[in-house]
Amino acid sequence: MQAFTKLTAIAAPLFRPNINTDIITPMQFLVGTSREAMGDILFAPWRFNDDGSENPDFILNMEHFREARILIGGPNFACGSSRESAVWALHSFGFRAVIAPSFGGIFANNCFQSGMLPIVLPEKKVAALVRQLDAAPHTATFTIDLETLLVLPSQGEAIPFKIEEFRRTALLEGLDDLGLMKKHSDKISAFQTTDRRSRPWIYSENFG
């Protein structure tokens, strides 16, 4: 997995509440699209017109935001379906971090599997960033520093954020979950040995 330390990039505002993963990657394009090509279908219902042409009013079709690597979403960003394609599509398009007041719980976990950083900031702070971008799109270059846990907008004060230390370390080092889980394989075996005695119905010999 790609490590994440510090990112300086354009941030694109898409501050709508409850954007679901069906909008981020609609089902009709999912099967048959490779993980790497998912950027092509990102936000398809909003990004493209019915005839397949680009919707010029959509933020990611505006010249300045085509190269965005940071997305600023609204509350409950990426709620709904567990489809990991939502993360893959954002990643494939070029995004490496999403800032929002809150995230769909499954999406947030999925982010960490691909080195995507989901940053939760208070809604007022996110709204203020969006207002700044709306008023002055040329100020959209932000820096996110995972070492110091700061979001540094091009204007205004640095904004601190929190993330579980465990997740921070994994992102900084580019470690995936499975590598870490395997370090605990002895503990997993020991758990099962004990558990097999207390809950024998869980295991295969009693699984008709």
Partner: peptide
């Protein structure tokens, strides 16, 4: 019981465990 992404699913299939934050 809860829903997870494909990558988490790979981890569970390979280890019979999952990393979760207690809600």
């Amino acid at each position: 019981a809860w829903g997870i992404g494909s990558s988490e699913l790979v981890n569970v299939l390979a280890s019979q465990t999952i990393i979760q934050r207690k809600p």
